[in-house]
Simulated assay, not measured.
Amino acid sequence: MDKIVKGALQFMQEGFNEHKNLFQNLKEEQNPHTMFIGCADSRVIPNLITSTLPGELFVIRNIANIVPPYRIKDEYLASTAGIEYALYSLNVENIIICGHSNCGGCKDLTQEQEIMLPNVKKWLSLLDNIKKHVDLQLSINNLQEQKNLRAWMIEKANIVNSYNNLLGYPEVQNRILQNKLKVKAWYFLIETGEIYEYCPIDGHFKIIKEQE
């Protein structure tokens, strides 16, 4: 905690001044151009990997960067509510879903963790069908030997699933058809800093490049 407090003090004394005018312009309202849906993993910093400033990104982070299927229910729907707010209240022009390598949320929980983390288990049950599908593609007898490949496949399949779920949100569909919204799905490779973009046409992830 001491490190965090010292960091906050340093920001107030030094860091804030670097963007003082920017924060003055942002004091009344935000007007982000992009919504970033990412994992809560501490190694994935949206503004850092997109080189953006305060006010540019509206960020939702959860375990394993999951976008649940669209639904309206009498319960607390944090991620769905955030997407709704970004579209209707902020009118974002872009949505990026960003997964990453070595994602803890995409790995299987141990029995001990399942007992300790019931809410995490429930949330990650959204990945059950993805894991079953991946396991069918791999040799069941050699799953342990293929655990790294399995994790890599689940991470990417989860991104694609979240991308497809997002396209199922009615207002997302409407805005895409009206050319008012672009949706991208990214895979961030932590160890190299590379970012790959999902191509829905051929189903592959390709390293991002300058937009044409």
Rank of each mutant, 00 (worst) to 15 (best):
A8M: 12
Q13T: 14
G15F: 07
L22N: 07
F23E: 08
N25Y: 06
L26Y: 10
K27P: 02
N31A: 10
H33D: 15
T34F: 10
F36R: 01
I37L: 10
P46V: 06
I49M: 05
T50C: 06
T50I: 01
P54C: 13
P54G: 09
G55T: 01
L57V: 09
F58K: 12
I60P: 05
R61D: 00
N62H: 07
I63N: 04
I63E: 08
N65V: 00
I66D: 00
Y70C: 00
R71Q: 10
R71A: 14
E75T: 13
E75F: 06
S79V: 13
T80S: 15
Y85H: 05
A86Y: 01
L87V: 03
Y88D: 12
L90F: 02
L90Q: 02
N91V: 06
V92D: 05
N94R: 06
H100K: 00
C103K: 01
C106Q: 09
L109R: 04
T110G: 10
E112T: 11
E112K: 03
Q113P: 03
L117F: 14
W123D: 00
D128G: 05
D128A: 15
N129C: 09
H133W: 04
D135R: 13
L136D: 15
S139D: 15
S139R: 12
S139Y: 12
I140L: 13
N142P: 01
K147N: 15
A151Y: 10
M153N: 05
M153R: 09
I159V: 13
I159T: 10
I159M: 08
Y163A: 08
L167V: 05
E171W: 11
E171N: 15
V172T: 02
V172Q: 03
N179C: 02
V183W: 06
A185Y: 07
Y196Q: 06
Y198P: 08
P200E: 13
I201S: 10
F205Q: 05
K206S: 11
K206L: 13
I208C: 09
I208R: 03
